[in-house]
Simulated assay, not measured.
Amino acid sequence: MTILFLGLVWLAASRLSDGGGVQVTGQPRVVDGDTLAIGRDRIRLIGIDAPERAQICERGGENWECGQEARRHLARLIGKAAVACEGHADDRYGRKLAVCSAGREDLNARMVGDGFAVAFGDYETEEADARSRQAGLWGGTFDQPRDWRARHGGMVETPHIDMDWIKTLLRRIETAWTSR
């Protein structure tokens, strides 16, 4: 019965997401650790928040340019691959909120899982894993990116809520199920 229910929910999600979805593909320019530019489109990786380009963090008693390193890490994950981004909304700054992938790699999940971004409405499981391994940002101390922006006159953002909530719910159920 559970499998039948999940199948129906997945079918409904597929049908709902067929309308209004935005797909952008191409070779991106990496703006920072959570923003890409493809052609005229600026894409904000939904559900994550990476340090700002000028943000400095601390690790082992030393300062390090965590914002620049997050940007470089995203660029390394992409390499020369084309990126495919799928989203269903724009943020208040006109950026497309999307999940992006290079090949089969979910860039949003990978940035959080590698410790170069924090969960920002999604990807809590990946963040918990990065924290436990003290990966990236979690190997030292840092200001949450939104707190850093607030103190330095940056854009005010609230955690992202994927408007395609059924797919988000199913992804969370799948993650919980496979981590058993």
Results as ranks from 00 to 15, higher is better:
147 D>C: 10
5 F>S: 03
129 D>E: 14
62 E>A: 15
172 R>W: 14
121 G>D: 03
11 L>R: 05
20 G>P: 09
169 L>Q: 08
179 S>V: 04
52 E>K: 12
179 S>N: 13
164 D>C: 12
93 Y>A: 11
44 R>P: 00
178 T>K: 15
103 G>P: 07
128 A>E: 01
87 G>M: 09
159 P>Q: 03
26 G>I: 05
1 M>E: 00
36 L>E: 00
148 W>D: 01
177 W>Y: 13
137 L>D: 04
141 T>R: 14
124 E>Y: 11
142 F>H: 02
141 T>E: 14
127 E>Q: 15
154 G>E: 03
149 R>D: 01
164 D>M: 13
2 T>G: 12
163 M>N: 05
12 A>K: 10
124 E>K: 14
133 R>I: 07
131 R>K: 13
93 Y>G: 09
178 T>C: 08
79 G>S: 07
78 I>E: 02
6 L>A: 05
106 D>T: 01
117 A>W: 06
175 T>Y: 06
19 G>E: 11
45 L>G: 06
21 G>V: 08
139 G>S: 11
10 W>D: 02
81 A>G: 05
15 R>Q: 12
62 E>Y: 15
31 V>Y: 04
76 R>I: 07
168 T>S: 15
144 Q>V: 05
99 V>F: 06
78 I>A: 05
160 H>R: 03
87 G>S: 08
169 L>R: 01
112 V>G: 00
79 G>F: 10
150 A>W: 02
83 V>D: 00
147 D>Y: 11
120 F>C: 07
145 P>D: 11
132 S>G: 07
61 G>L: 14
10 W>Q: 11
123 Y>D: 01
110 R>G: 06
30 V>E: 06
31 V>A: 05
69 E>C: 14
113 G>L: 15
46 I>E: 04
42 R>Y: 05
87 G>K: 02
72 R>K: 14
152 H>Q: 12
55 Q>C: 12
125 T>S: 10
27 Q>P: 06
5 F>P: 00
95 R>L: 02
62 E>H: 15
94 G>T: 08
48 I>M: 10
162 D>W: 13
70 A>K: 13
105 E>A: 12
5 F>R: 10
55 Q>L: 13
165 W>R: 15
102 A>F: 03
174 E>F: 08
31 V>P: 03
106 D>K: 01
69 E>S: 15
